[in-house]
Design a protein around this nucleic acid. Structure first.
Length: 239
DNA sequence: GCCCAGGTGTTTC
DNA sequence: GAAACACATGGG
């Protein structure tokens, strides 16, 4: 948290060149969520029929559009490979071919196989009830190919654990509208959210989903501010 | 044709 | 350590 700017002052339009105040405090984040909720309904995430499908989807969607993931998921389903035993057993080359539409298919086939070793060892019952969150998270992060965002997506959306998910959209939105520096680590941003919003799984679930809506529809690399729920919110014109 | 997508690991300074 | 690079398809 050391590199985050101190918060505490009231919001303003940032009229001067003075360093902008980090506004990602509890009232700022609450406002962000309320503004998105005025525009979008609760998203009911994650898209997927079973926890296992959600976990696979979390790996497949790494740096890839969801529409491409859907094509890969369809292939996996058709091949009967969207269940643990089948995915553990399938030849890695065949697996790569099935998930081809999601991009990086050789890489992701290896990652899915790595993930299945974790699954068999740590989550044989498929839900991990009773396993401490810290153990689930640390062992997931030890899997080659599962970084913090993928791990936390699995924990929150497939295993119903109360962990906030940070992604590129979150970083960009906070940089443009809440004046963080943008170079904070994943953990700093996760703890920032977890320290400043109510610790409710349903809130963590929908807040991240709303951020993705905002990032897809408006807060793109080149901003599309028309119709954005944050249009009248203070923002940094230069980013 | 170019840009981008719900990242992560490895290599290189 | 941080910056640069590799990984790849499909849709706008």
């Amino acid at each position: 948290m050391g590199s985050l700017k101190k918060s505490g002052q009231r919001r303003s339009r940032n009229p001067s060149k003075a360093p902008k105040q980090n506004m990602a405090d509890s009232s700022g984040l609450e406002e962000l969520y309320l503004l998105t909720r005025k525009k979008w309904k609760p998203q009911g995430w994650w898209p997927g029929d079973t926890p296992f499908e959600i976990m696979v989807g979390a790996i497949l969607t790494q740096n890839c559009s969801w529409s491409n993931v859907e094509l890969a998921i369809t292939n996996l389903k058709a091949a009967g490979c969207l269940e643990p035993q089948a995915l553990a057993d399938i030849d890695i080359g065949q697996l790569a071919n099935l998930i081809r539409p999601s991009g990086y298919f050789n890489l992701k086939a290896r990652r899915l196989k790595n993930f299945m070793r974790w699954y068999t060892e740590v989550l044989p019952d498929g839900h991990g009830k009773g396993v401490p969150l810290s153990l689930l998270r640390s062992t997931l992060l030890a899997v080659n190919g599962i970084g913090p965002e993928t791990a936390d997506s699995i924990l929150l959306y497939a295993l119903n654990r109360t962990v906030f998910v940070i992604d590129a959209y979150t970083r960009r939105i906070l940089r443009r509208h809440f004046f963080i520096r943008g170079k904070e680590t994943y953990e700093e941003l996760r703890l920032l959210f977890e320290a400043n919003i109510k610790r409710r799984r349903s809130l963590y679930n929908d807040f991240h989903a709303q951020i993705v809506m905002l990032g897809k529809d408006h807060c793109r690399p080149s901003a599309r501010c028309e119709g954005c729920p944050l249009q009248d919110h203070p923002h940094d014109e230069l980013l």
